[in-house]
Design a protein around this nucleic acid. Structure first.
Length: 192
DNA sequence: CTAATGATGAACT
DNA sequence: GTTCATCATTAGG
């Protein structure tokens, strides 16, 4: 699994970039599920759209902590999203995982999601949280230690594309969304 | 205490 | 492509 040093000494957008192609693994009591990260977005405290913008609060305080920890948040009344904290303690930054390509425990994911279509298991922020069995219980946990962790990118030479983020009502000017070019598990396709 | 808001998904036409 | 479900967190009084 990737160690603490992987998350350190990287800018948030750099981490978002490096995370593409890595495998996210969760060993739960129901079984192990895993998937390749194919889409990310980066957020920083200087960015108006970020939860960590301007001040810290009870919800986002883990984003100001050391990098490599898990930030899980709830939105729109029913949806959970999964983030990885980036940059050193004191800086509120993180990478939102937007989509996964399932690799292990696909049957379990289908059961959790109550869907049969593999393409539709984890191609969205709240979907992958459900498919992986991640919950608020994982909030603040380190990714370099424990049952939820990352494996190094297996394939080299994947094409990385980037563009504006999705679902932001303010500050959409930063091209801080990254995805693997041509991967069909990426949520949505930006227009040229 | 009360009201507005939102880094979305599913179902539908 | 469009509509709406649904609630923790936040800001304001």
């Amino acid at each position: 699994m990737l160690l603490k040093s992987f998350f350190e000494n990287k800018k948030v957008e750099e981490l978002a970039n490096t995370l593409l192609g890595c495998e996210l693994v969760h060993e739960s009591s129901e079984g192990t599920t895993a998937g390749i990260i194919v889409e990310t977005e980066s957020y920083h405290e200087t960015d108006e759209a970020s939860h960590s913008y301007k001040y810290r609060s009870k919800r986002n305080e883990v984003m100001f902590g050391p990098s490599g920890h898990v930030y899980v948040y709830f939105t729109y009344g029913i949806h959970w999203c999964f983030n990885i904290v980036a940059e050193p303690e004191g800086i509120g930054a993180g990478v939102l995982i937007r989509a996964l390509e399932p690799t292990q425990g696909i049957e379990l994911m289908k059961k959790r999601r109550n869907k049969q279509d593999v393409l539709n298991l984890a191609n969205g922020p709240a979907k992958l949280v459900q498919a992986m069995g991640i919950s608020k219980a994982d909030y603040g946990k380190p990714l370099y230690k424990g049952k939820l962790y990352l494996n190094k990118a297996e394939s080299k030479g994947v094409k990385i594309a980037f563009g504006p983020r999705i679902g932001i009502s303010k500050a959409q000017e930063k091209p801080w969304r990254f995805w693997i070019e041509g991967n069909s598990f990426v949520s949505g396709r930006p227009r040229p």
